[in-house]
Design a protein around this nucleic acid. Structure first.
Lengths: 118, 118
DNA sequence: CGCATATATTCGTAGTTTCGAATATAATTG
DNA sequence: CAATTATATTCGAAACTACGAATATATGCG
């Protein structure tokens, strides 16, 4: 696989490698929002939001269009939504396996009739 | 969506946010490889590879098993392969649209019968 | 025009990541 | 046990990232 493609992928990942930027992409999942709209929901400093938006624009994850005074942002390609959805499932799968492991650990050391390890 | 989930996603993205680490995950696509095997294919410093492997282990993207002298790495969950595949398609889609844009730009300014702008 | 609103940029500081060089640890072999 | 091989960790320097405060730019409005 080409270096260019790997480079590209790593840049997309860098673009998404911050909880605030993930929150932004998720807020835009159902359509565009203005910068102000985003800031209001994110509850962070205006400058900070604008910086994160600049990162997402630079990586071409978002596109913007200006309407009068405001700038509307939207996701450039739904593929990224798909990626976030995969990771959500992945997250719960990991959680599950952690819970299962914990349960097994508990069963191996019963509380009610302690007996030492077998 | 929960903060924990966003945090989790951003950590996965951080884990993948380096071309070398993407290369590692891709090398492991078809099964496990030893650290040494990876280093050989990556052609980077041993210490550097080991550091990247540590990052991927910390984010639980890879799992390792020790066999004698060597450590074999593999991908913990195929979901991440799926993510890389989506981004490959995404990459080519973006390339296409760039090429299309360039073609249009050329057509709007024909070479053979120059005529000024408009 | 002058003022208000929306958004972006710049700056300084603190924290993080990356790298190679050096060193440490662990298993294997003679 | 000493030497060898495979891998991991630590260290210091350079590069990069994130944040809020301050400032800049652009549009709209009276």
């Amino acid at each position: 696989m080409s270096d260019a493609l790997r480079q590209f992928k790593s840049e997309i990942f860098q673009g998404l490698a911050h909880p605030t930027r993930i929150a932004i992409v998720e807020l835009l999942r159902d359509g565009e929002l203005s910068a102000g709209g985003l800031i209001e929901k994110l509850r962070i400093e205006q400058a900070n939001a604008s910086q994160h938006l600049a990162v997402l624009r630079a990586k071409q994850i978002l596109v913007s269009r200006k309407v009068g005074n405001q700038v509307y942002y939207s996701i450039r390609d739904r593929a990224l939504i798909e990626v976030l959805d995969i990771l959500r499932r992945y997250f719960y799968a990991q959680l599950d396996s952690t819970v299962t492991m914990l349960k097994e650990a508990v069963n191996e050391r019963p509380k009610t009739r302690p007996r030492g390890h077998r």
